[in-house]
Design a protein around this nucleic acid. Structure first.
Lengths: 224, 224
DNA sequence: ATGTAATTGTCAAAAAATTATCAGGCACAC
DNA sequence: GTGTGCCTGATAATTTTTTGACAATTACAT
């Protein structure tokens, strides 16, 4: 369905945002929109939107623009929201539980079918509609349910080992929240490292440099 | 201190990762490292590392490489980890509490001095060393403590209004976790939108397309 | 001391991403 | 139906980012 086998990562990264904005437009009852209007809304250029969408096909119509609902559906298909990848979450600590309850996995093509934690005190607790199992059960569970996606909310020291184990059990993709850059040697394994700390640091950088932005001549000791 | 007033966003985004890897190297007792070695470790090119670092100054030495500890310190200074921006967190739900306890704010130049929630049931609860206050106290608290950074873990409907209020109270930067693209008109306001859902969607996309990767000719109905 | 191997910082080249431009085509008014 | 204005898709131009190349410099062994 794609025009060209390879779509650049930059484009892919923008797709979810398009999808989100289009969803909002539907809620607001907007039927059609031009690339110019959408660009104004999303603070992009119309050119970029048209170019991005044309990586996947011509969804618009000259003199009309894009049908919001159709475009939303198409991007959804491209992203794979209609899929239901079986997903497990490892590490039911603060972060793991928050992710489980805060993220709507289903609307993003994933189905959370199990949560695991090595702490026996967690075992049996109900979180976001499922019950936390002990990691001892992980292997059996995977052999039975064949999850394709794993969310990792575990300390960095265990991450690599657990990931390798899960690859052995057929897991194809990792959404990794541990403070560790996971990289799996095996081919055809997808890894999405989320580094919230890095995100905060870039914020800090920007706040830091905003203050001395235009006048950047050693005006120190004033704020320290 | 910077060689050139403007450093591109691409470079800034990589700085925290350099900082992280250098911190690990220090832990492991590595004293010096060449761009080539660091590149191998981080899966980058040596050229890129040298070019990135040279945006800020020449931290290396020919024939020797970079002193790990010094480089770590320098990048830390550039990022601003020595700063202690007063930070508040709004929304002590699942996600807010997880962020508060999971992220080490101090090591990233921020100091979490208060948490707020509109739900009276949350008020008084202790999270990550501080006590959750009711949002009624927010204004008074801000006038007293002058926080510069706000972490937003609130529903998307309130986000824009709360942000505007906080800007009025002197907040300069937002780390926004609500499912909403916050953008503040005022100049000199920093916004870092974190969209975990978007991150998951790109994972879904990649898993989805990994399966039909090289052979992408309409082999449908097989997996559906 | 001297030579060799290693490594940076810088500049140039290449690649990638973004933006501008425009012909062609469609919607819509009349 | 016809004309006008709008909008897409495609292509070209521009900008940005990444990679490659190399002279200059340093460490280190002998």
């Amino acid at each position: 369905m794609s025009k060209n086998g390879t779509v650049s990562a930059s484009v892919i990264k923008r797709l979810p945002r398009y999808y989100r904005f289009l969803g909002e437009l539907i809620k607001q009852g907007t039927e059609r929109i031009s690339s110019r209007e959408l660009a104004a809304l999303m603070k992009l250029t119309a050119s970029q939107i048209r170019q991005d969408l044309n990586c996947f096909g011509g969804f618009g119509q000259q003199g009309y623009g894009y049908n919001v609902e159709e475009l939303h559906t198409q991007i959804g298909r491209i992203l794979g929201v209609d899929r239901k990848f079986s997903t497990i979450l490892i590490g039911a600590g603060n972060l793991g539980r928050a992710i489980a309850s805060h993220i709507n996995f289903e609307s993003r093509g994933c189905l959370l079918i199990g949560m695991f934690d090595s702490n026996p005190k967690m075992t049996g607790k109900a979180v976001a509609g499922s019950t936390v199992r002990h990691t001892d059960e992980l292997e059996f569970f995977c052999r039975t349910h064949k999850p394709e996606v794993a969310v990792l909310c575990i300390p960095k020291d265990n991450t690599q080992a657990i990931a390798e184990q899960l690859v052995g059990l057929g897991v194809k993709a990792f959404w990794n929240f541990s403070h560790y850059d996971l990289s799996v040697d095996h081919e055809n394994i997808v890894v999405e490292n989320v580094h919230l700390g890095d995100s905060l640091l870039t914020l800090t950088y920007r706040v830091n440099h905003l203050l001395h932005s235009d006048d950047e001549q050693e005006q120190k000791d004033k704020t320290e």
